[in-house]
């Protein structure tokens, strides 16, 4: 564990707490993509179910439990509790375009060996799917052209999580010769998808302005 990874995980955890806070205080899931949240549940379940048969550390297991349960809870809030506030007409990104390529890639590029096939394929699937899971949310943002400030804080914390993993990988390569090409390449793509968002967040939201996309 190094500082970058720890801050990344903390940022990830914070993003989820911000999102739950936003939905509960506004009693609305306006501006939130159900499809992106559904993808995160798929990502977390396919990657973190290994907590049943793999033990890394107490920290690792607790975080996995947190991510599976909190993302499921968010899905419940959106789909059941505050369902009337959901507007499916703007959340139109097609999920098969993301899930099918991620599934195919995971069958081709994975770390499977004779001992572990399914768990390794599921792991790489979750990594590929995570790297693009934010797209329905960014697409929704693009369509509405603006966002509540709290939603932009959520997106910033979520993007910062994977961005912080990049110095972590550099650090791990330098100190333990650890290289995970699947995670690194997907992580770079995932972070790059936030480039536009980060730009507007830093130039507008941080200065107290409303998040609005240029017309």
């Amino acid at each position: 564990m190094n500082i970058f990874r720890f801050l990344g995980d903390l940022s990830h955890l914070t993003s989820i707490l911000i999102l739950i806070h936003k939905i509960q205080t506004s009693r609305s899931c306006r501006g939130i993509s159900y499809k992106t949240q559904l993808l995160y549940v798929i990502v977390f379940v396919s990657r973190y179910l290994d907590l049943v048969w793999t033990y890394v550390s107490l920290y690792n297991s607790l975080m996995k439990l947190f991510f599976i349960s909190s993302s499921s809870y968010i899905l419940y809030l959106i789909k059941i509790r505050f369902r009337p506030t959901l507007d499916p007409s703007i959340d139109t990104f097609s999920l098969p375009y993301l899930i099918i390529p991620a599934a195919i890639l995971s069958l081709i590029f994975n770390y499977a060996d004779e001992k572990a096939w399914l768990s390794e394929v599921l792991w790489s699937f979750s990594i590929y799917l995570e790297s693009v899971a934010i797209l329905p949310q960014l697409f929704l943002l693009q369509r509405t052209g603006e966002a509540e400030t709290i939603t932009t804080h959520y997106l910033f914390a979520l993007g910062a999580y994977r961005a912080l993993y990049i110095p972590n990988w550099i650090y791990r390569y330098a100190t333990e010769s650890f290289v995970d090409p699947i995670a690194i390449i997907s992580g770079l793509i995932q972070t790059a998808l936030y480039a536009d968002f980060f730009y507007i967040y830093f130039t507008k939201v941080i200065r107290g302005q409303k998040f609005e996309l240029p017309a």
Binding site: R5, D9, H12, D50, T54, V56, S57, N60, M63, K64, F67, Y111, D113, A116, E120, W123, Y165, N168, E176, S177, F178, V179, D180, P181, I182, A183
Partner: peptide
């Protein structure tokens, strides 16, 4: 050298 199969990252 640690291998990537350990998946110790979140």
């Amino acid at each position: 050298e640690k291998n990537h199969h350990s998946h110790d990252e979140l």
